[in-house]
C-alpha cells in the first residue's frame, strides 16, 4: 500500500448567493516512500487547493472537502483538529511558495525551528537549539549559529526558503508537500534548492509531492506527473513517456508553448489559444474543449472519463497522436 493515497478528492467552495465552485474535482493519486509525484498546471487549476486539502488547512466554513486522503492507513480527512495537529509538522511537512510570508517576521529563525522540535519531539530548548543548528547546516545555511538568532528579514530569499525546508524537515516527516517552493527564487538559487530536495528524497526516503507550474522543474525531479486542468487530472504518466509523447492536447499545447533553451534558432512557439476564462464546466463536457485544437463535437457534450490508455491515465476523447507537430498557428 502506498504511503499516501488520495482518492476522488473534491473541494467545493461555496459563497452565499453564488454558484458553488469546484476547485478540485475528483483528483486521485498515490505516493510511495522515496517517490516524487508532481502536480502541474497553470494558475487556477486547483493544484494548491489540493495540497491544502491534504494537509487539512482549508477553512471549515465555505469549503467542502470530499473523497479520501489515506496516509499510512488513516483517513486524514476524518481526523479531528487535534489529531491533525499532531500529524502536521511531525509526519507531514509542508513547504510554501513565499518564504517571507510563511515565516513569522517577529520571531527569530531559531525559535521557529525549535518550536516544531519542542512540540513534536518533546526536546528541551537547549537540545532543540543544537538540533536546529544541525538542521540549518544540513540545508546549507552558512554560519547557522548566527542565523538562528536572526529574523526572517535578515535572510535572503534563498536562505529563507532553506530555513523553511529545515522547519519542514525538523521531525523527519515521511511525506513532504512542496507548493511552488522555487517560484519566488532566482534560477541559480532554484537550482540549489532543487538539488537539496532531490538529495533529501534520496537520503531520507521522504515521499515528495511537488506542486509547480514549471514543467522544467518537473522534468528533472518527479517520477510521476499529474497534469491538472480545471480541477481534474487530465493526464497522469511517468515523466519519460509524458514528456516524450504527451497525449492530452493540453499537455501537448503546454510543452509546445514553452521556449526551450536547447531549441533550434528560429523555432516558433505554438501557444494554446484563448485563456482559462474560456473553460466550460466539466459537467457539460471537457473543460479544455473551447481551447483545444483536437476538439470534436462529442467534447462539448460528454464529459471524458479517466481512462487507462497506453499505460497512462488520460481524460480525453481525441488524444494527440504521437509525433504530430503542434497545432496550427493561432492567429493573434
Amino acid at each position: 500500500m502506498a504511503l499516501l493515497e488520495v482518492r476522488d478528492l473534491t473541494v467545493v467552495f461555496q459563497r452565499r448567493g453564488e454558484e458553488p465552485f469546484r476547485a478540485v474535482d475528483g483528483v486521485s493519486f498515490d505516493v510511495e516512500p522515496g517517490q516524487t509525484v508532481g502536480l502541474v498546471g497553470e494558475s487556477g487549476c486547483g493544484k494548491s487547493v489540493t495540497s491544502l486539502a491534504i494537509m487539512g488547512l482549508l477553512p471549515k466554513r465555505g469549503a467542502t472537502v470530499t473523497g479520501t486522503v489515506t496516509y499510512d492507513g488513516t483517513d486524514l480527512l476524518k481526523l479531528s483538529d487535534k489529531q491533525m495537529r499532531d500529524k502536521r509538522g511531525s509526519e507531514l511537512g509542508m513547504v510554501f511558495q513565499d518564504p517571507l510570508s510563511s515565516l513569522n517576521p517577529v520571531i527569530p529563525i531559531g525559535i521557529q525551528v525549535t518550536e516544531v522540535l519542542e512540540r513534536h519531539r518533546g526536546l528541551a530548548r537547549k537540545e532543540a537549539m543544537i538540533e536546529a543548528k544541525n538542521l540549518l547546516d544540513k540545508v546549507g545555511i552558512p554560519d547557522p549559529n548566527r542565523r538562528l538568532k536572526e529574523y526572517p528579514h535578515q535572510l535572503s530569499g534563498g536562505m529563507r526558503q532553506r530555513a523553511l525546508i529545515a522547519i519542514a524537515l525538523a521531525c523527519r516527516p515521511k511525506l513532504l508537500i512542496a507548493d511552488e517552493p522555487t517560484t519566488a527564487l532566482d534560477v541559480t538559487i532554484q537550482a540549489q534548492i532543487l538539488s537539496l530536495m532531490k538529495e533529501l528524497v534520496q537520503d531520507l526516503g521522504t515521499a515528495l509531492v511537488m506542486i509547480t507550474h514549471d514543467l522544467g522543474v518537473v522534468a528533472g525531479l518527479c517520477d510521476e506527473v499529474n497534469v491538472l486542468y480545471g480541477g481534474k487530472v487530465v493526464e497522469k504518466a511517468n515523466r519519460h513517456p509524458l514528456f516524450a509523447e504527451p497525449r492530452h492536447p493540453y499537455t501537448h499545447g503546454l510543452l509546445s508553448s514553452i521556449p526551450r533553451l536547447d531549441a533550434a534558432p528560429g523555432e516558433k512557439l505554438t501557444p494554446i489559444k484563448g485563456s482559462v476564462a474560456d473553460n466550460i464546466p466539466w459537467a457539460q463536457g471537457c473543460a479544455f474543449a473551447p481551447r483545444c485544437p483536437n476538439a470534436l463535437d462529442v467534447c462539448v457534450q460528454v464529459t471524458p472519463a479517466e481512462e487507462d490508455q497506453l499505460g497512462r491515465l488520460l481524460r480525453c476523447h481525441n488524444p494527440v497522436v504521437p509525433g504530430t507537430p503542434a497545432a496550427e498557428e493561432v492567429p493573434v
Partner: peptide
Amino acid sequence: SAIPVPDPVVEDRRERILL
C-alpha cells in the same frame, strides 16, 4: 546550467554548475 529544460532525457544528462 541552472535553467530547467522540460525534457527528462536532457535533465538526466545535464551537468549542473551550482553556485
